[in-house]
Simulated scan of single mutants.
Amino acid sequence: MPDGLTVGFEATGGQEWALWRVLISMGLNAVQLPPAQIKAFALSMGKRAKTDQIDAELIARFMAFRPEAGRTLPDEKLQFLRVLTVRRAQMVEARKRLSAQISARRKQGMSAELEDMDSSLKAFLESQISELEQRIESVIGEAEELSATCCSRQDWQLPAIIQF
Score class of each variant (00 low, 15 high):
117 M>V: 14
73 L>A: 06
89 A>K: 13
69 A>D: 01
102 I>Y: 06
76 E>R: 09
112 A>M: 06
102 I>K: 04
129 I>N: 01
68 E>I: 08
103 S>I: 10
115 E>S: 11
124 F>L: 13
129 I>V: 03
122 K>R: 09
103 S>C: 12
128 Q>T: 03
130 S>D: 11
92 V>Y: 04
129 I>K: 01
79 Q>W: 03
106 R>C: 13
111 S>A: 15
99 S>E: 14
85 T>V: 08
86 V>L: 12
119 S>Y: 04
60 A>R: 05
97 R>M: 13
76 E>C: 05
126 E>T: 08
118 D>W: 11
66 R>V: 07
105 R>C: 11
68 E>C: 04
90 Q>D: 11
85 T>F: 03
110 M>T: 13
89 A>W: 07
102 I>T: 04
88 R>G: 00
66 R>A: 11
128 Q>D: 03
127 S>Y: 01
83 V>Q: 12
100 A>F: 01
103 S>P: 07
113 E>C: 15
77 K>H: 14
82 R>S: 10
111 S>C: 12
70 G>K: 02
105 R>Y: 09
70 G>P: 01
98 L>N: 02
84 L>N: 01
122 K>F: 03
116 D>T: 14
91 M>S: 12
128 Q>P: 01
130 S>W: 05
130 S>C: 06
85 T>K: 05
115 E>N: 12
75 D>Q: 06
121 L>S: 06
73 L>R: 13
72 T>E: 11
88 R>H: 00
127 S>A: 03
72 T>V: 12
90 Q>R: 04
81 L>H: 01
124 F>V: 08
80 F>D: 09
80 F>N: 08
119 S>C: 11
114 L>N: 13
64 A>Q: 12
119 S>P: 09
96 K>A: 11
90 Q>S: 05
93 E>R: 13
108 Q>D: 12
76 E>Q: 14
106 R>Q: 15
63 M>P: 00
97 R>Y: 15
107 K>F: 06
118 D>E: 07
115 E>V: 11
72 T>Y: 12
92 V>H: 03
63 M>K: 00
112 A>E: 09
128 Q>S: 05
85 T>Y: 02
91 M>G: 06
84 L>E: 03
94 A>P: 11
71 R>W: 02
94 A>T: 09
88 R>F: 01
126 E>I: 07
77 K>L: 13
107 K>Q: 11
72 T>R: 15
89 A>V: 07
84 L>G: 02
66 R>M: 07
91 M>E: 13
64 A>G: 02
112 A>S: 07
98 L>H: 04
93 E>Q: 15
82 R>T: 09
82 R>W: 08
129 I>S: 00
94 A>D: 12
125 L>R: 04
73 L>G: 03
81 L>C: 01
75 D>C: 09
118 D>F: 13
92 V>M: 03
81 L>F: 03
116 D>N: 15
118 D>K: 04
84 L>T: 02
94 A>M: 15
81 L>E: 00
63 M>G: 00
100 A>E: 11
82 R>A: 08
122 K>E: 08
88 R>Y: 00
70 G>I: 02
120 S>F: 10
61 R>N: 07
83 V>I: 13
91 M>W: 04
99 S>Q: 14
96 K>H: 12
75 D>F: 05
97 R>Q: 15
113 E>M: 15
123 A>E: 08
107 K>R: 14
122 K>Y: 00
